[in-house]
């Protein structure tokens, strides 16, 4: 079964069609990349997947739940991380984690925090206010918050944005490890093409609200005759090259 099924999804803001009749699926246990330039509709799509935004038309099914009718059942089994959404800065990391532990009804929340602190190396910063952390530490804390409920589906919006290469690599390694161990499905929106090539088994390319291509990274490289996804991304973004017919 697919963890995410999106069918004929559209979102219109007045005269602007932000998402235009897109359909895609994320197989359970896969990491799917949602790629596109600024304004392609990635954030709007993720917001609709999270129930933050009501679609103009179309249907979203997450973990078997219709998001229009039963979104809270799905939300309890998924989680989300984005560098653009903060955690309360005056609360310590531990307090923030407890808040979300309660919101997601996590059993033995302090034990879960201890496990995540060990795995993500948060021990030394657990009792520091979230607002006093470096960008890399904040990213690890945001990831820990996103994993507090052992999600079956993880939505990540640019999880390594503004991180140095070392910290970015640590986060990517940890995500690979977590997906392998937990069988979790990951939907990743990113502008980092190397990251997408490394983590994703499927890629959905968006442009001006439409799905313009899809496939595995290898399939896309072959189709466009390129050696890396960045070149494929630029081909699509700048209408430079069409996919080579199979």
């Amino acid at each position: 079964m697919d963890a995410i099924q999106v069918e004929n999804l559209s979102k219109r803001y007045g005269a602007v069609l932000a998402v235009d009749d897109i359909s895609f699926a994320a197989p359970t246990g896969a990491t799917v990349g949602l790629l596109g330039g600024n304004g392609a509709g990635k954030t709007t799509t993720i917001a609709m997947l999270l129930g933050l935004l009501v679609p103009t038309s179309g249907r979203i099914t997450v973990l078997g739940h219709d998001m229009a009718k039963d979104r809270f059942a799905a939300l309890a089994r998924m989680n989300f991380s984005s560098p653009y959404v903060a955690l309360p800065s005056r609360l310590t990391v531990r307090e923030n984690m407890r808040v979300y532990g309660h919101l997601y009804d996590v059993a033995r929340v302090d034990d879960r925090i201890a496990v995540l602190a060990r795995e993500l190396d948060l021990g030394p910063i657990l009792d520091r206010p979230a607002g006093q952390l470096s960008a890399g530490q904040k990213t690890r804390v945001a990831l820990a918050k996103a994993l507090i409920n052992r999600p079956e589906l993880l939505l990540l919006d640019e999880p390594t944005a503004s991180l140095d290469p070392d910290t970015g690599d640590l986060v990517r390694t940890w995500l690979e490890q977590y997906r392998t161990e937990s069988g979790c499905t990951i939907l990743l929106a990113s502008h980092n093409m190397a990251e997408v090539e490394r983590l994703c088994s499927h890629v959905v390319m968006l442009k001006q609200g439409k799905v313009v291509d899809r496939g595995s990274p290898d399939e896309l490289l072959t189709r466009y005759g390129r050696h890396d996804l960045e070149a494929v991304f630029l081909d699509i973004a700048r209408d430079r090259r069409q996919a080579i017919p199979a």
Binding site: L50, F80, L87, Y100
Partner: peptide, 18 residues
């Protein structure tokens, strides 16, 4: 308003909190 000031509403509204 505290939730808005701390830019935390995005997390709160994607949790199962009704």
């Amino acid at each position: 308003l505290e939730e808005i000031w701390s830019r935390n509403l995005g997390h709160v509204f994607v949790s199962p909190l009704r």
